[in-house]
């Protein structure tokens, strides 16, 4: 797998990361280096082996269907850049 400059531009946009033009090539090289290193794992034959989901045998913990009051609205909104009448306020988004 190899990552080119266009791919870096695309995944940066998907991740909402702003990148300067002159940082794109170095980033592509860096990512390719990481991928090449990880790629060594594919030398191991995993044919017919179930994916391992953890180092210890554990099952998914589950909760009962008991509702508890939500977080106090003021606390919830405390770190919001802007709040209005109980709502989070964000820049206008219209599709």
């Amino acid at each position: 797998m190899s990552i080119d400059k266009d791919t870096v531009v695309r995944i940066a946009r998907l991740s909402r990361i702003a990148m300067e033009d002159d940082a794109l090539e170095p980033m592509a090289e860096e990512l390719n280096g990481i991928l090449a290193w990880v790629e060594q794992l594919s030398e191991v034959d995993t044919e017919g082996v179930e994916p391992m989901t953890g180092a210890i045998a554990a099952t998914l913990p589950q909760r009962d269907d008991d509702a508890e009051a939500g977080t106090a609205t003021d606390d919830l909104l405390a770190n919001a850049p802007e709040a209005d009448d109980g709502f989070f306020v964000v820049p206008k988004v219209v599709e």
Binding site: A67, E68, T71, T73, L77
Partner: peptide, 18 residues
């Protein structure tokens, strides 16, 4: 564990997970 009831005041049924 936040409740699911419809029509509550905005942001009153939100846990820190949500």
């Amino acid at each position: 564990s936040a409740p699911t009831a419809f029509g509550a005041e905005p942001n009153t049924q939100v846990s820190l997970v949500d």
